[in-house]
Simulated scan of single mutants.
Amino acid sequence: MLDPAPPAPFHDLLGLELIEWRDGFARVACEAGPRHMNRSGIVHGGVYLALIDQSAAYAGLYCTVPGNVRRAVTVDLDCRFAGQAGEGRIVAEGRVVSSGRNIFFARTEVFSSDGRLLAFGASTHRYRRGSHLPEGVPVDAPVEKD
């Protein structure tokens, strides 16, 4: 079980899939198709941004207790586009650079199915209450506004 959290409708909308997850690292994939294209027939930059955001967040939210979850909000995210892709598998790899009690920082790269760099970015995330701990909180615990 890679993702113990409740379903994420936005992930479903884009077709994002968490394919590898461990402490400080996450790999998220998307099978880009016609719905992911912009008017020029290439993958929309928003898809890359979503992949960067989600893989970076997951990298900082690995939970050591089955059935629990860790949550965060994205505080800052930047992206540089380095290539273009059409239909096919796109994979983002997020890595935690550093973390503290309330904040963690991550770097992410997005690759095409043939290994070309498509985008890269850096992001800052703030843990939700209780999520700074590796064991997280019960998945059904109410999410409080911090």
Rank of each mutant, 00 (worst) to 15 (best):
A50W: 04
A92I: 12
R80V: 14
P9A: 06
R95G: 00
A8H: 10
V28N: 01
D76C: 09
S40T: 13
G136A: 07
F105W: 07
T108E: 13
G45E: 04
I90D: 12
R70A: 02
H132F: 08
D114I: 15
Y58H: 07
V139N: 08
L133K: 05
L13Q: 05
I52S: 05
V137S: 03
R22C: 09
G46H: 03
E87H: 15
I90Q: 10
I103Y: 06
F111A: 00
P138S: 10
A26R: 01
F105P: 00
T108F: 07
P7V: 15
A85Y: 09
L18G: 04
E135Y: 03
P134L: 06
Y48N: 03
V73R: 06
A26M: 04
Q84N: 15
Q84C: 13
G88Y: 13
S112I: 10
P9S: 04
I52T: 03
T64A: 08
V43K: 08
D114A: 15
G121E: 08
D76R: 12
A8V: 11
R39E: 03
A72L: 09
S98C: 01
R128C: 11
S40L: 14
I19L: 10
L77I: 11
I42A: 12
G130N: 05
G130Q: 07
D140M: 13
A5V: 02
R71W: 02
V65E: 06
D78T: 15
R71D: 03
E20C: 01
P134Q: 03
S112M: 12
G83F: 15
S123P: 13
H36C: 11
R27G: 04
L133C: 03
A72E: 13
A50C: 05
P6D: 07
V43L: 09
V91H: 02
A8Q: 13
V137H: 04
L16C: 09
S131R: 05
M1S: 14
V75C: 14
V137C: 03
F120A: 01
N38H: 11
G33Y: 08
G86M: 14
A8W: 08
R35G: 06
L77R: 07
R107P: 00
A50L: 05
H11A: 13
S131I: 05
G46K: 04
V97R: 09
G86L: 15
H44E: 09
P34N: 13
G83E: 14
G136N: 07
A59K: 00
S131M: 08
V137Y: 09
A56I: 01
V91E: 11
F81Q: 04
E31D: 15
V43Y: 07
R128K: 11
A57R: 02
P7D: 14
A92F: 07
V65H: 03
